Simulated assay, not measured.
Amino acid sequence: MENGTFIQIKNLKKYFIEEPDLLMKLVAKKKKRVVKAVDDISLDINKGETLGLVGESGCGKTTLGRTIVRLYEPTEGKIIFEGEDITEARGEKLKEYREKAQIIFQNPYSSLNPRKTVRQILSVPLIASGVKDPHEREERIMYLLNRVGLNYRQMDSYPHEFSGGQRQRIGIARALAMSPEFIVADEPVSALDVSIQAQIINLLEELKEELNLTYLFIAHDLSVVYHVSDRVAVMYLGKIVEMGKTEDIFFNPLHPYTKALLSAIPSIDKSKRRERIILEGTVPSPVNPPKGCRFSTRCFMKKGKMCEEVEPELKEVEKGHFVACHLY
Rank of each mutant, 00 (worst) to 15 (best):
F182H: 13
V184N: 12
V184S: 02
V184I: 14
A185R: 02
D186Y: 14
E187K: 15
E187P: 00
P188G: 09
P188V: 10
V189G: 15
V189N: 12
A191E: 01
L192T: 14
D193Q: 09
Q197M: 11
A198I: 10
Q199C: 03
I200C: 14
I200A: 14
L204F: 07
E205P: 08
L207W: 00
E210V: 01
E210A: 08
L211V: 11
L211H: 09
L213W: 15
T214V: 13
Y215Q: 13
L216H: 08
I218E: 03
I218K: 03
D221C: 00
L222F: 05
V224A: 08
Y226K: 15
Y226V: 00
H227I: 04
H227D: 14
S229V: 00
A233H: 06
M235Q: 13
Y236N: 01
L237K: 08
G238R: 04
I240Q: 00
V241G: 04
T246Y: 07
D248M: 12
D248N: 13
D248H: 11
I249S: 02
F251W: 05
F251C: 05
N252K: 11
N252F: 05
P253Q: 02
Y257K: 04
Y257L: 03
T258H: 03
K259D: 02
K259N: 04
K259Y: 03
A260C: 06
L262Y: 04
P266S: 05
P266A: 02
S267P: 00
